[in-house]
Design a protein around this nucleic acid. Structure first.
Lengths: 355, 355
DNA sequence: CTGAAAGCGCTTACAG
DNA sequence: CTGAAAGCGCTTACAG
């Protein structure tokens, strides 16, 4: 590879001159005549010069590489968030390095982040994150967590605002004439000392929206489910059992089944539709079903799923923008929170309430 | 951040000594007494030293950063391949940087690869790739293409071998008693001057497997479809029309409809099932349907889809292993091809042929 | 306006 | 066995 020195000798100027014109640096003490500037530029392209970004980073102490720490990158929502960050990074002239972490590898990945002198870190990690904040603080690297669901003790966080989507979904069902609406929520909190998760948040949102419309949520109209949606067990029949049970409980409710079921995630909604069909109910003829996420293949489902559209990509973009904003400024660890709104997309799994 | 010099002064040794013990370098001319070694190690940890990987790369001329150039990272098969490469990279002690490319940004991304002095590049790019090979060759960076479907003019390539999965699928259907099997193939070649794509390859595989079983493929038992599966139009009803037509042509065939339909991709299979249902046919009672890919959500479909399992992740791992193998060796651009086998997973969309 | 010089944090032959 | 020195490719005050 050819270097700045090569250009300098060939063009008969100093290395600093080359550095200045190649970086297009003008200003008070730098004024290089157009003639030499041209000559330098020409010999550079003619020799096929490619600056060494690494050396540049070492010398300047600045880097335009951002890290993205993620636990389960194969889950579509997580992945889409990464892609949002990637797209934004590229538009802003940064470069993205994704590091996957598990409980065992977390420490090593964090170490890599500081050894690579990353300019910032976006974090989407399940489990304890204190090590990340500790190390990153020590190395003065800004951190922002993204889509981490609930409360984060440190750093800036960017989270999805489920409220607008939830509101639109209920609005949609109400306009279709539904009043008996059930909800299938996350059953995971009971395994985590009652710690809230996004399912709990969505359930609360559901309840308050129902209330706003003056609609009752009878005892037993909210059921729970703990199916795995990624990992080795995802999709086995046993794994789906809890979703099936949650659906059946709704279908067999003593008040009669709800005319619409709102689910805390798309995978649940797909299970619900299957169970309804097996129970002889047509969707949306007899019962409407709404999901949450808008996974990419859900539009190919039969029927195409009406669902809340979570802003996965925008979440990543916003996180990246936060990082970009913090870089360069002196390090300020005071935490902030940014909300990104959700939407709703009506497809074919919802229809008029049966009369 | 504290540096080697800091450690050297504090421990009262030379910087080279520090470098040697921190890199655990022994050998002929290097022998550092255990006492000083210990002292260096201790002061390093005690001062919280973190080596600067960038500086190390500049000084040594080596880098453990690999690039992954990809066109449509949001399409599940493509990102699963990325994740395979990521996992393998991390296990091998490399680090992965993903760069997304479009027609417009390709040149810039390639430039970034060489400016970052990447150790290797994995390529999964739709369209012309000659620029990549040209630049990478100039910079002596090994390139391997992955999952690029058909013939690649340069570099090493890693591709999925669709044969075993296809074979298993037909075997499965035959054992269920099916003999009238239709195929829905890719219609894209007709828009690309007849250039083969993975759909064409799968169609050929289908035909030869049928022949091996002594089964006929009547005229009109292979239809074609050109639906978009990612991008803005994916999933709109108009977009799905071609898949619907391809299915109806099969269902209304003058010989009577096939008892099983094998599709060149999962999205098509999902459409087929929907159309069958609309036509009053139950799946798999009246007709069996097989997909191709094994997208993650296809197991939540109703019915859970029987499908060929493409080795997305393993493709990425193999590509990464190829890169790792080429690094360090003097640059050898002679092309090689590596096949990674596919499998088959029987779920609920296939059943005994109706009698 | 430009060049000589010191510096970024590291590696790596090479004397002694 | 260890240290002084040159080097990697760049940046950046600072003389002149």
């Amino acid at each position: 590879m050819i270097t700045m020195t090569d250009i300098a000798t060939k063009a008969g100027v100093s290395r600093s001159a080359v550095s200045h014109v190649l970086n297009d640096r003008h200003g008070e003490n730098i004024r290089i005549p157009d003639a030499t500037r041209q000559r330098i530029l020409e010999t550079a392209t003619e020799m096929g010069y490619r600056p060494n970004e690494l050396a540049r980073s070492v010398a300047s102490g600045k880097t335009r590489m951002i890290g993205y720490l993620v636990s389960e990158p194969n889950y579509e929502p997580y992945w889409n968030t990464i892609l949002g960050a990637l797209a934004e990074a590229e538009e802003l002239g940064f470069t993205l390095k994704v590091l996957s972490v598990t409980g065992q590898t977390l420490a090593e990945r964090v170490r890599q982040c500081v050894e690579l002198r990353l300019g910032g870190i976006i974090v989407r990690v399940i489990g304890d994150k204190s090590l990340i904040f500790k190390e990153a603080n020590g190395a003065q690297i800004p951190v922002v967590t993204v889509d981490e669901g609930v409360e984060q003790p440190f750093g800036s966080s960017v989270v999805a605002d489920d409220a607008p989507g939830c509101q639109a979904a209920i609005e949609h069902l109400v306009q279709l004439g539904h009043s008996r609406i059930g909800f299938i929520s996350s059953g995971f909190p009971q395994f985590n000392e009652g710690k809230k998760d996004i399912g709990s948040i969505r359930e609360e949102l559901f309840r308050s929206e129902m209330q706003r419309h003056g609609l009752e949520v009878p005892e037993g109209y909210v059921t729970r489910e703990t199916m795995a949606v990624f990992g080795p067990h995802a999709g086995t029949e046993e794994n789906m059992q809890s979703a099936r049970d949650a659906t059946l409980a709704l279908l067999e409710h003593s008040y009669g089944h709800p005319t619409a079921i709102f689910c805390w995630r798309d995978e649940t909604a797909m299970c619900v539709i299957r169970v309804c069909r097996q129970a002889g109910l047509s969707v949306p003829g007899d019962i409407s079903v709404v999901g949450f996420s808008d996974l990419s293949t859900v539009r190919f489902f039969d029927p195409p799923l009406s669902t809340v559209k979570s802003p996965w990509e925008e979440l990543g973009r916003t996180a990246m923008r936060q990082i970009a904003q913090r870089i360069g400024k002196e390090f300020t660890p005071e935490p902030t929170t940014h909300l990104v709104g959700s939407g709703f997309v009506a497809r074919k799994s919802t229809g008029p309430a049966p009369v």
